[in-house]
Write a protein that binds this DNA or RNA. Structure first.
Lengths: 206, 206
DNA sequence: GGAATTTCTTGACAGTCGTCCAGAACCCGC
DNA sequence: GCGGGTTCTGGACGACTGTCAAGAAATTCC
């Protein structure tokens, strides 16, 4: 049964979680504009309607806030491509949809992914970042593998490499494209599209 | 002709440059251990035999020091693989040498390359970093391309992708391997070797 | 409406940061 | 060994950082 105290506590927990989510959303925005190293808690708070003290009411310290943000980022990031897998009936259609999806992500969410690469680099130095970063990396790898696997299936071929390999190469391609796109290159997105399709056709064989 | 003043001035310039190089070397060491965001000028100075004030005698500000370090890193980094190209007489020998070179770099210079990925991420936020980062990225791309091109030549095949594509994928592979290696994975180096050979055989065709 | 609890603000704290500068220490030609 | 230039030191400065706690404000409950 549910006591009155449980109901109260439950609602408080929900409100608490909701505010955490809301604060993390603002933080994610500020972080993606300024980068991890240059963003202070006061700056994050200024882009919300709360004071900097509030951040310490909802998060123990800066690391906990950052990691909460990263996990929130992941949720948005991964599922985008599963619709493409579900909607594509031919290998070529999947390839086209995937390439377009990557280009759209690079164009529309450039700042968020810039932050992702920043935080992944930080995790090379800050061990406390690694578990969450590894988890996101893993879910991205699985996402890429669903694409590759479905592409192989649709084209009646077999993947020629491991999922780790596939993820590493697609990630490298995306990262390089992001760098060029943010540097103002007009060709970056087209090259990303072409590169993705080329890569996809090379990770499978009959 | 060379005047006495010229000789004096010349020697001073040399000494000045030599000390800059020496300070940058120490800075590179400290930076690679702690990362860009966590390394202060005082900390850099403490790992040399000089005081923190000296850094500002030889470098205008922190950015100039960092960029000087990065350029020094580049010089060490690129040429390593050209010997492999020159020494390999067969396609398979080149592939083996290249794969072993990548694994050795990942093992021996992990911290330096961790710093490279850190600084490249920083360049996504700090525009003043971009020219130097882009230049290093370009020289790495050319280095990779010399490998691929020579491999195609030795195996009587043609490259199937652009040099930008080749660099992006090999870089992605290396970066992922570095992350796993630094996280303590024993398989990282072997996977890197295998991945590199696999990738190399797939960027060419008859 | 008043008491209790949650939520939020504000200011302070102890550090650290990059930068600057007055002057000490050193080097070198004369 | 003296003088002038180069090299280096170490302290000071103001700005900024993450963290904390005391209390104001808002909300909730009876």
């Amino acid at each position: 049964m549910t006591t009155a105290a449980d109901r109260v506590s439950r609602r408080q927990v929900d409100k608490f979680e909701e505010r955490r989510r809301q604060l993390a959303e603002g933080a994610l925005q500020t972080l993606s504009e300024r980068g991890y190293a240059r963003t202070s808690l006061r700056e994050i708070a200024q882009n919300t309607e709360f004071s900097h003290g509030t951040l310490h009411y909802y998060f123990r310290d800066k690391v906990e806030l950052i990691m909460y943000c990263v996990r929130q980022y992941k949720a948005v990031c991964v599922q985008r491509y599963d619709a493409i897998v579900a909607d594509s009936a031919t290998a070529d259609g999947l390839a086209r949809g995937f390439a377009e999806g990557l280009a759209a992500t690079c164009r529309d969410d450039a700042l968020l992914h810039r932050l992702w690469y920043d935080l992944r680099s930080q995790s090379l130095f800050e061990e406390s970042f690694r578990p969450d970063v590894a988890e996101i990396d893993g879910s991205l790898e699985r996402m890429i593998w669903r694409i590759v696997d479905r592409y192989a299936e649709l084209s009646g071929q077999e993947p020629t490499c491991s999922s780790a390999m596939a993820y590493a190469t697609f990630d490298g391609l995306f990262q390089q494209s992001l760098l060029r796109h943010l540097s103002g290159s007009d060709l970056a997105l087209d090259d990303l599209r072409a590169g993705a399709r080329h890569l996809l056709s090379h990770v499978v064989c009959a």
